[in-house]
Design a protein around this nucleic acid. Structure first.
Ligand SMILES: [Zn+2]
Ligand SMILES: [Zn+2]
Ligand SMILES: [Zn+2]
Ligand SMILES: [Zn+2]
Lengths: 173, 173
DNA sequence: GGTTGACCCCGTAGTGGCTTCAGGGTTTCC
DNA sequence: GGAAACCCTGAAGCCACTACGGGGTCAACC
């Protein structure tokens, strides 16, 4: 099985297959006389395993560990659970922040109905006002203040940010 | 105002401030005799604007455009709306895929209750079975088949993937 | 035998939004 | 005069790919 066939069989790009090999996730295959990679069914299975885990958005390092567990059937599966739990926690954190983000963006979007000069655009007005430390539609104070964030720092990543997006913690977290 | 003060005032890391300058988002400030950057209130405002937009997870390129609109008050705000709408669409797509992902991971996690040898771990069994093309807890067929995905390719990014994570489209999309 | 086209090889650089590092200089306080 | 805190620059690292450049290989067809 050459790399193109493997790629087609799994729906993975050829470059990605080579990348996985270079990253140590996929073992180096045998080579034909002309230097072409020659894959076995085991490679196909392993690659499908990797893609399945990637579909669950697991990082490659975690996938490597899962593959390791698989290769050592005697080991304890507690670490597998820890790993899945961590991934689940990551996904839930991102889910929450995406949820907040959607509300914020929708509120901001509602500030402009029909096109006009940017000078009078409710969206830009909100953004500028927020930059001045005033309350904004997208980040209303959650009750404990009345006015919105009076400090630009509210948008900072304080302590533990809810993963990637949504560095704004003043009502999302 | 030196870079450290600006950074503290906005809750941004110093390196990030310099990065924004290098990226053209923040104009080059004046310099003191010793070469230190000297920022004005306008820089502070602009940086707060940037961070607010970043809190809405907008890409820096979009933020640059928003700043441009702000600097040209005569221009039409239609493009602002387009930009926000695109961001909202991105967020909603990711929200949906995160949602699906959470269900998938939770289903997978439920396959292992108490620790044991990986050999008999329900989680690893599921992952291996899925790699063989069998049905898995995390990706049950959505009705139109009965059995799960019988083809490893289901995890491929076919056509338009729902943004970053969740390359698995067989029930999430 | 020449050429087209589909394959394959390798190494490097680019993506986004930072963060970190290496290797310095400046200012301030004790 | 020495330590701590601040500042400077440019380059590299992170993640998971993706794209590119410059080649080699192989079958088929004219
Ligand atoms: Zn408008
Ligand atoms: Zn806001
Ligand atoms: Zn288990
Ligand atoms: Zn699955």
């Amino acid at each position: 099985m050459r790399i193109g066939e493997l790629a087609r069989a799994t729906g993975v790009e050829i470059e990605t297959v080579r990348y996985y090999e270079k990253s140590g996730l996929l073992p180096e295959p045998a080579r034909q006389a002309n230097g072409y990679r020659a894959y076995s069914a085991r490679h196909l299975e392993r690659l499908a395993f990797i893609r399945h885990c990637r579909a669950l958005d697991m990082p490659l390092a975690d996938i490597a560990r899962l593959l390791d567990f698989n290769d050592h059937p005697q080991s304890d599966c507690g670490d597998v659970n820890t790993l899945i739990d961590a991934q689940l926690a990551r996904v839930r954190a991102r889910l929450a922040s995406m949820h907040a983000l959607e509300a914020q963006l929708a509120a901001l979007r509602a500030r402009c109905r029909e096109p006009h000069a940017t000078q009078e655009c409710g969206i830009l007005h909100e953004l500028v006002a927020a930059a001045h430390g005033e309350a904004c539609a997208c980040h209303p104070a959650p009750g404990r203040g009345g006015a919105g964030h009076a400090d630009p720092r509210v948008f900072a990543a304080d302590a533990e940010a809810p993963e990637r997006p949504g560095r704004c913690d003043n009502q999302a977290g």
